[in-house]
Design a protein around this nucleic acid. Structure first.
Length: 402
RNA sequence: GCGUCGGUCGUAUAGCGGCAAUUACACGAGACUGUAAAUCUCGCGACCAUUGGUCUCCGGGGGUUCGAGUCCCUCCCGACGCA
């Protein structure tokens, strides 16, 4: 074991793919399964790194595309890397920019999200409708992707090598290969084409990475794709597995019903001794599904974005703090929750802060939501170690209404 | 007391003969899954209803007109000016 990270399994779920483990990185050890806080632009929105740490976060993930545009990876490098730049000294990851191929590309302005409730067959037939009023800001070619900056319209060309170079400058402990996240609405022939491209890019990402000194202290994860297709998913898992990455990401925009099968197909193939990260997934029921099926790491904007938009996780489901009923509700945000927000503030106060558009609203809600999700995944870990996962899952989901 | 301007959906506004009536905020609800997001969508007179329909509405009352927030008369209220 000579890579920059070390993964050891502590206990497994009987008869299933799930496991609890330890992932050692140059900036500390992550107890898995673990939820990775999203800090796209080198900040977990609304909170400081100290708050992030004290609410129980062990690891966070920033974004190549956003930091490349602003302030620029060279600036971050001069600052001494992301850890010093943003004052987060725990384990850190960076995403490659591959998701932006989707969110700024095929999903741009079309109301398509990462997880669709169901696939509308009408949309599938017509493929994605083009809006002639909206200039395309992403265009893909065999070598890379041209982005028109969403900030000022400047064109930038991102290739696998460029993405890795940027991620080397950013200096996270774990970085991702440059991939293409496709829309589930794309037809089969396109999924095929995009998958082949992602595999070529994976190889190029890895080759470039290994040719640099940074590969000694930064780990590189390859990303499995394949959309909704069993054939492509399994093929992708085999192809990425063959490439000697330090760990794996499972990517894609899913229809809710396709997610479970996709994760199972892939994790049955991926090597057991390397960590797996289910990219961009984080609703409670999905986290149970992922953990049960062998996912070690999750990241998701849901807890932080929901928090800023006034939605709070509770053990019985999400509540919208903007609703009239909370104006004079002087009970804690959530009874029995030990987080800073719940220990110190009442619903009526949070309701007031949101209505008054005070910044503290987002901060307090973020602290609670992140604690809720991070603690949920951590509890799953403990349940795996204790051998009580099924009971824990049953009890949680019985109370929780999505 | 006289004169001028003004009174429109909770508030602030648009409207100057075809209007259930503009816009913003507020209010009510919903959405959000590798962050174009402290954002976005919908609703906001009432009652039916499948597209759609019926009624009631722009300070009060009266008038002109096929048709009136919109024009005329009068009353009430407010601001300003002159007494």
């Amino acid at each position: 074991m000579s890579g920059p990270i070390k993964f050891t399994i502590e206990n497994k779920l009987e008869g299933k793919l799930g496991r609890a483990g330890l992932l050692e990185t140059p900036h500390g050890t992550i107890e898995t399964p673990s939820f990775v806080a999203v800090g796209t632009k080198a900040t977990v929105k609304a909170i400081t790194p100290e708050m992030l740490s004290s609410l129980g976060a062990q690891v966070m993930i920033a974004n190549t595309y956003h930091l490349f545009l602003q302030p620029g990876d060279e600036i971050v490098k001069k600052a001494g890397g992301l850890h010093d730049f943003m004052n987060w000294h725990g384990p850190m990851m960076t995403d490659s920019g591959g998701f932006q191929v989707f969110s700024l590309g095929s999903a741009y302005g079309k109301g398509i999200s990462k997880v669709t409730k169901e696939i509308d067959p009408q949309l599938l037939l017509n493929e994605a409708p083009e809006d002639p009023d909206k200039p395309k800001i992403v265009s893909i070619d065999p070598d890379g992707v041209t982005f028109k900056s969403h900030l000022d319209g400047t064109s930038y060309y991102l290739t696998p090598e460029k993405s890795i170079e940027i991620q080397h400058n950013l200096g996270a402990d774990i970085i991702f290969a440059f991939d293409e996240c496709t829309s589930p609405l794309e037809p089969d022939h396109y999924q095929r084409e995009a998958l082949d491209r992602t595999h070529r890019w994976a190889k190029r990402s890895l080759d470039y990475h290994r040719s640099k000194e940074n590969s000694k202290h930064q780990a590189l994860f390859g990303i499995v794709h394949g959309g909704r297709s069993e054939k492509l998913r399994k093929e992708s898992a085999e192809a990425i597995k063959a490439l000697d990455f330090d760990g794996f990401g499972i990517g894609g925009s899913f229809s809710k019903v396709d997610m479970t099968t996709a994760v199972q197909w892939v994790n049955e193939i991926l090597p057991e001794d390397k960590p797996r990260h289910l990219l961009g997934i984080g609703e409670p029921e999905d986290l149970f599904m992922g953990v049960e099926n062998g996912v070690d790491l999750f990241d998701c904007v849901a807890p932080t974005r929901m928090a800023r938009n006034g939605t709070i996780y509770t053990k019985t489901g999400k509540i919208n703090m903007m609703n009239a009923q909370y104006v004079d509700d002087f009970t804690p945000i959530e009874k029995d929750c030990p987080c800073y927000t719940c220990k110190n503030y009442k619903r009526a106060y949070l309701s007031h802060l949101f209505r008054a558009k005070e910044m503290l609203a987002g901060t307090l809600a973020t602290i609670h939501n992140l604690y809720f999700i991070i603690n949920l995944v951590h509890s799953m870990r403990i349940a795996i170690i204790d051998g009580t996962f099924d009971d824990f899952k049953k009890a949680f989901l019985a109370r929780y209404t999505a």
